[in-house]
């Protein structure tokens, strides 16, 4: 009997562990600093999570299809630098679509390598993380990129504007989440993404063109990156070459926290939004209780590992593997 209830507790922890951990964090932060749950702080967290959140939406597709995307951080730097540079050269009306086209090309290239050439997504996107970083530096000559006339451009609306009292970045995040949530849950494409990630062989045997689905997931991911780059550029109207550096891990952490399995085939856009908010609140809470900014990196990693562990543990029904 004792071992039965022990197994039960293990399974419960594995399934609900993230939410329990989150609750503990929230209570701890609130006790440590009363401002944590104030409306201003909550809004602040959501706003600062918007860029990360937009990227996480795209990566959700990639992860559900059974792959990884570690290139989104450096790709976001690329989009930001390109759109800022072109803003002064060809004007914002042309700069924005031009930046989208270039970013989508990068996504298509990755999608080609992982989908059609069947290369390992971890290696491809890790390589692209570095390659795109190099591309960005080559493009900018290593210089920071700034818009010359920061006061006189409407371009700032995407990052700094607000409508109906809600900051535009949050609106974009929520609208895109709703749109992609529908694509994933309600369209044949979304269904195929789940099938490909759940069992790629069975999907192929059902006549689904696996390579095409994987390709489209990466294009989708790069589209979200372009949106994120647009918000980033618009918010600061100037940028370093490394603005997106390290974001790939935060994005991945958010997606996994939301409950998408790294093994593919499960996850939803709604859960990813929850994951983004959990990550945002934890990182914000760490700052509010007075920890150094840099502690975030350690904590984010600890969270990823916890989430992956619990995912595996939930699948095998216990916390520890019996096979050494």
């Amino acid at each position: 009997m004792e071992s039965m209830s022990k197994a039960g507790i293990g399974r419960f922890l594995a399934r609900q562990g993230i939410l329990i951990a989150f609750a503990v964090f929230i209570i701890g932060f609130t006790l440590a600093n009363g401002r944590f749950l104030s409306p201003e702080n909550v809004m602040g967290v959501v706003r600062s999570s918007a860029i990360l959140g937009v990227m996480a939406l795209g990566v959700t597709f990639v992860v559900i299809s059974g792959n990884l995307d570690l290139s989104v951080g450096s790709m976001m730097s690329f989009s930001t630098i390109v759109v800022l540079d072109l803003h002064d050269k060809i004007g914002p009306v042309l700069a924005i679509p031009a930046m989208f086209v270039m970013t989508l090309c990068l996504g298509a290239f990755i999608g080609f390598l992982v989908g059609y050439l069947k290369l390992n997504s971890l290696i491809v996107t890790l390589g692209m993380l570095s390659a795109i970083h190099g591309l960005t530096l080559t493009y900018s000559g290593g210089q920071n990129m700034d818009i010359a006339d920061k006061e006189g451009t409407w371009f700032s609306v995407f990052g700094q504007g607000s409508a109906l009292g809600i900051p535009v970045p949050i609106l974009i995040f929520l609208l895109l989440a709703a749109l992609l949530g529908i694509v994933l849950a309600k369209t044949p494409f979304g269904r195929k993404v789940y099938a490909v990630g759940g069992n790629g062989t069975a999907a192929t045997f059902s006549g689904i063109k696996r390579a095409r689905i994987v390709f489209l997931c990466y294009v989708m991911s790069s589209f979200c990156v372009a949106v994120a780059g647009l918000i980033q550029a618009s918010r600061s109207l100037g940028s370093q070459n490394t603005v997106g550096q390290g974001l790939e891990l935060d994005v991945l952490a958010a997606v996994i926290l939301g409950g998408a399995s790294l093994l593919g085939g499960s996850g939803t856009i709604f859960k990813t939004v929850i994951g983004v908010l959990i990550l945002g609140f934890i990182q914000n809470g760490l700052l509010l209780v007075g920890l150094q900014f840099y502690v975030q990196f350690v904590v984010t990693w600890a969270i990823i590992i916890l989430a992956v562990w619990l995912d595996i543990a939930a699948k095998r029904g216990k916390l520890l593997s019996t096979i050494a």
Partner: peptide, 22 residues
């Protein structure tokens, strides 16, 4: 391994090859 996406529900597995046409 080849016939079913085990984590998917019965209906979605059954209609998988024609989800586009439906």
């Amino acid at each position: 391994g080849q016939g079913l996406v085990l984590g998917m529900n019965c209906r979605d597995n059954m209609t998988l090859p024609q989800v586009g046409e439906l």
